[in-house]
Each structure stands twice: as C-alpha cells, then as structure tokens.
Nucleic acid binder design. Structure first.
Lengths: 206, 206
DNA sequence: ACACCCCATATTGTATACAATTCAAAACAC
DNA sequence: GTGTTTTGAATTGTATACAATATGGGGTGT
C-alpha cells in the first residue's frame, strides 16, 4: 500500500513506522538503529534513513552520538512528565486563545471527525490508535495558530511523553471516558465561551 | 582556521556561521537558502549543507517546504516571546533544582569563565557575542541536568528568540548591567540557597 | 487581451561510492 | 599475567550522479 505512492517522501512513512515500533516496545530501549540495516529493511538507500533518524532524534525518540550511531532513547522520567504537563497547558492555552475568535464550522467538523475515530478506537480497545488520535486532536488545535514555530515547540514537548500516552490509556479506565471528555471540549468550543473552553482543554491535559 | 581541522563535522561550523548571519541580519527574512549555492560557497557537497539546514529548521531560524526549498523564517512575534518567557523560567528552574545539590567548584569555575568573557564583551560593546554568551550561560545550567531531553526542549524555546537577544542588548542600557546580574546569580549559587538562587535566575529571564 | 495548458529549468529527494572515525579485539612488550 | 599499542572491521560522515518534483514563462486558442 506504499509501493505505488509518490516514491518520494519515503522519509515520512519510515518515521511513522519506526516511531510506532518504539512506542509499542517492539524496538526496546537502548537498542541501536543502524543505518545500513534499516536501509536494507526498507529497501531504500541510507539518505532517507538518515533523515528519518534525524527527525526521530528531534522528537526525542532516539539519541545519537557523532560517529557512533543511534540508539532508542529511554522514556522520560516521571519528574520530566510532570514538568511537561504545565508547559503543554501553557502552549495549548495560548494556541486556543489565538484562534478562538476565528473558529468556524470547518474547524468543528475537522475535530468531530477525529472524535468519531476516537469513539471507534475506544470501543475496539485500540489503545495505540487512541493515543495517536488524542495527540492528533491537540496537535490540530496548535497547528491552527498563525504563530509560526508554536507547533514546533508543541511537538518537542509532546513527543517526549508519547510513550506515556499509551501507558496511561492502558490503565483500567473506561476508554470511552477519554472520548466523552473530548466531545465535551469541542462542545464547549461551539458555545464560544473562551475561558471555559481553555479550562476544559487544560483540564484534559494531565 | 578551519581548513586543518578534522574535516568532519563541517556541519557545525556551517550551522554556526549561517545562524550568525541570520541573527545579524546579513541574510534577511524571506531570503531563500539554496543548497547548491551554499555548497559552492563553503566548498563542500550538498550533504552537510542539508544537515545544517535541517538543524536550523529545527531551531526555527529557517522554514522549509518539501521540494520547494528553505527560506529564512520571520522572527518570532511579540506575543510569541511573551509566551516563551514563562516556559523558559519553568524549564530552567526545574533544571537548577535538579542539579543544585550536586554543584561543586568545577561548575562554579565553568560559569565564572563565561562571566569573564561576558565582561570583556560588555566592555567592548560586542553585543552579538554578549548575546551568545548569555545563551551559553543559561544553556550550561540546563545541560548539567541529568534529565535527557531537557536541553532539547530548552534549545527549541531559546532558539525562537535568539534574534531578540541581540535587539534587547542593543537598547541604550549599560551593558555591564548584564554582566553584574549574572555575577550575582553565580554568587547566589555559591551560597547554597536554592529558593533565592531560583529567584535570581528566573528574574534574569525577561 | 486574457485564461489555460504545456514544457523547460531550477531545485530538492534519492541512490551509490568513497573517506574518516570509532571501538574493540588481538598482538606485543614488560 | 597485565598494561599498552596497533590493527582491523563496523559505522557514520561526505562527495558525486541520477531521478522526481515544483515553479515560471511562453505559446495557443478563444
């Protein structure tokens, strides 16, 4: 399903695949990622592999030492997560405030499309996909901000706790609770109340 | 002064040079950065140029569109700067707390070496170098934290307002004030008082 | 004159080949 | 046997060549 595609931008597919394998633990912490091995595996040259590894390093999924190679980075510590949470809240609040006045039906529809997918993922107990959809939802908020670079900061933050999304969702909670929480957020957005919307959004971040 | 060097890691030199030219305005906003042109200019192939541009994009100095090229990104907006300030304060406070108990004479000496350079830069009114030294000082604090990824987050934040450091220092202030402020910070660190040290540090961030 | 399509050119994305570096194991002196 | 040196393979960094794609201008039809 990817052989017929543009044949360019193979980097993105590789990044997504490797990231998923790291998140799910298929590639464990500390395991080295050699460029030639990956090149053979994906049937491409080393060039796109290098770019993919660069991006993963930027996301904090792997750490690389010069002339030494790339290894899967250890997951963020608990204190690190606790640091990132208020940072995320600040960034996302800022983003929401900057776009709130200009929200229209197109935006709501986009979010509700994500919500529909979330519902399906919840009911099917597809925690991996649910985690990605949660990220996708919040990212779509930040991405709408006209401020260039905001999304880059946000990605840097969230990537650091991507593996914790999955862990958090696998707790013995009712997955649908996640879904309803996001439904409430979008519903609040529709009311046009800024303060309450910000509150709903940041209370979802923890 | 760079021809005899390792001949590897040319990427770093190129990044530093281009970043400086962007900060000082020698390369203006919106100006395209072509890979072949830069390759000819630095007498290297396109490979290290691509890596350098990737890193500059990660720092927010340039923005790239696929198959379209790289342009110098506009400087962060005022509202963006105001957002980043509390984020920096949070991150650096966290970093300082995590290392404070283990500080020793080696650390103090390292910082005071930077302070000496700052004094010289202040007296010579070398604002560009002064800005870089200010960044270097704060970065050295964050870098000491054992938390992996913290420095990456910090860099993402600070890079976004690198060009504003220069602008801020060129205001009609007495440059030595910057120097004395940092001297006071290190002096406070030496006393071992955590709370006061954190306060001194974050009050310097604005 | 104006809109549309096509094509040439400039530029980025990818593949392959080579150089430089690192790390560890083996050889060696003591 | 132990510490040091050297040598080699494994790996990343760089250079060059080719393929794919986007952008702008000219041609054409109306």
């Amino acid at each position: 399903m990817s052989q017929i595609e543009p044949a360019q931008d193979q980097k993105l597919e590789i990044v997504d695949l490797l990231r998923m394998e790291i998140i799910t633990g298929r590639i464990k912490e500390g395991m080295p990622l050699r460029e030639v091995s990956l090149a053979e595996r994906f049937q491409v040259s080393r060039a796109p592999i290098r770019e993919a590894l660069k991006q993963l390093a930027h996301e904090g999924m792997v750490e690389s030492k010069p002339n030494c190679g790339v290894r899967v980075a250890p997951a963020s510590s608990d204190s690190m997560q606790e640091l990132i949470i208020p940072l995320r809240q600040t960034v996302e609040s800022f983003a929401l405030k900057s776009i709130f006045a200009d929200l229209n039906e197109t935006d709501f529809a986009e979010w509700e499309a994500i919500l529909d997918e979330m519902k399906i993922a919840c009911e099917a107990h597809h925690y991996v996909q649910l985690a990605e959809l949660d990220i996708k939802f919040h990212q779509s908020i930040v991405a709408k901000s006209p401020e260039q670079g905001l999304i880059s900061i946000w990605i840097t933050l969230v990537s650091r706790l991507r593996r914790h999304f999955l862990a958090g969702f696998q707790q013995p909670h009712d997955p649908l609770k996640i879904y309803y929480e996001h439904v409430a957020i979008v519903a609040m957005f529709r009311t046009g109340k800024l303060e309450a919307s910000v509150q709903a959004l940041i209370s979802n971040i923890d």
